[in-house]
């Protein structure tokens, strides 16, 4: 398997220059490196403000990186001319979180689906046939061809968003929280649809989500971010070694009343991206913190095949069995 996407030491900071404000630099994404093989699904997890959406936009080069490089199918995107970059965008598409604002309210479904061809200047033999096949691909009735977005449900709108992203036959689809605003039963439909499309069209997904449970279910590889940095990259079935990943997992509520667990309470506040600490960003909340963590930034180190963690005190072998036990035993938190 060759890598479709290689991200190398990517950083992006934003400079805040308000009229009466002190000049401040916000570190949204810092020193992020990873690769994504063809046909794989990489999940990016983290809480609000961890930089996951900025990372998505950097990968698609919708915003420019401050440092680092993105290589797509062997091409360094920084070296491409504007025209080449636009043509390359046919092969990389984005599905937005909010299907309500992603589609122009004055466009009918048909117009929304034909827009990518217009933008890219692709001539179609038959627009009607193209619209019909796109609708069929995402499981929408042809009766919706002339509907406006306000006449569709949230799930239907997200299907239109997916159909539009697939219109130009891309290789990479970046999915930015595609189910966050949907009901669980609709989420299940959309995830099943994405899985089917990936298999039939050979797509590669970068799947961004705050839901570790969903990411573990859907993705091959998981990348966990905290305050703009990668804290752990691991296969979906691996036992987390970083205390933050562990805390995320502990905070995920299993839909099983027999598995009620005491939640490891994280105290302390998340530091600001304007003023990231010199050491590990998680040190203010970490139960395993030491003096070293407050002063020295832990590097991302390989601990086993495809598993890297950025922690001075990772939960290693002897701890792993304990973690597994806690995950599997049924401690009752509430009598």
């Amino acid at each position: 398997m060759s890598d479709l996407l290689i991200v190398d030491h990517l950083s992006r900071h934003f400079t805040n220059t308000g009229l009466f404000q002190k000049r401040q630099v916000f570190h949204a994404v810092s020193d992020v490196s990873f690769s994504l093989a063809r046909g794989q699904i990489l999940g990016v997890v983290g809480e609000s403000g961890c930089g996951k959406s900025t990372l998505a936009r950097l990968v698609l080069r919708l915003i420019q990186p401050s440092k680092g490089a993105v290589e797509f199918d062997g091409l360094d995107m920084a070296t491409l001319s504007r025209g080449d970059l636009r043509r390359l965008r046919q092969r990389m598409q984005l599905v937005f979180q909010d299907p309500y604002s992603a589609i122009d309210p004055r466009y009918r479904v048909r117009d929304a689906l034909l827009e990518p061809f217009k933008v890219q200047g692709v001539k179609l033999k038959s627009a009607d046939a193209t619209v019909a096949s796109l609708l069929e691909m995402v499981g929408l009735s042809p009766a919706l061809t002339h509907s406006y977005p306000h006449q569709l449900s949230g799930g239907q709108k997200q299907r239109v968003g997916i159909a539009r992203a697939l219109a130009l036959n891309p290789s990479l689809v970046v999915l930015d929280e595609p189910t966050a605003s949907l009901d669980v039963s609709v989420q299940a439909q959309i995830i099943a649809l994405l899985n089917r499309l990936r298999e039939s069209l050979g797509l590669t997904y970068l799947f961004i989500s705050h839901d570790l449970g969903l990411v573990r279910y859907f993705c091959d590889k998981i990348l966990v971010m905290y305050l703009g940095r990668i804290v752990e990259i691991m296969p979906n079935d691996a036992v987390p070694t970083h205390p933050y990943t562990r805390a995320l997992l502990d905070s995920t509520f299993e839909p099983d009343p027999r598995q009620r667990r005491t939640i490891t309470r994280l105290s302390g506040e998340i530091p600001s991206g304007y003023n990231p600490p010199p050491g590990c960003a998680f040190a203010t909340r970490c139960p395993r913190v030491s003096d070293l963590c407050r002063t020295n930034l832990p590097a991302l180190e390989t601990i086993s095949d495809h598993h890297q963690t950025a922690c001075h005190h990772p939960l290693m072998n002897e701890m792993k069995s304990e973690v597994l036990q806690q995950v599997n035993t049924h401690e009752s938190a509430v009598p």
Binding site: V184, S185, G213, R216, Y217, P255
Partner: peptide, 24 residues
Amino acid sequence: QALIRCIPRRDMTRGSMQPIPGMV
């Protein structure tokens, strides 16, 4: 029954989640 089957659980493998057909 259907609602419970469409929530991802730790022991599920990809593709085993069963969505409810149709809509509300």
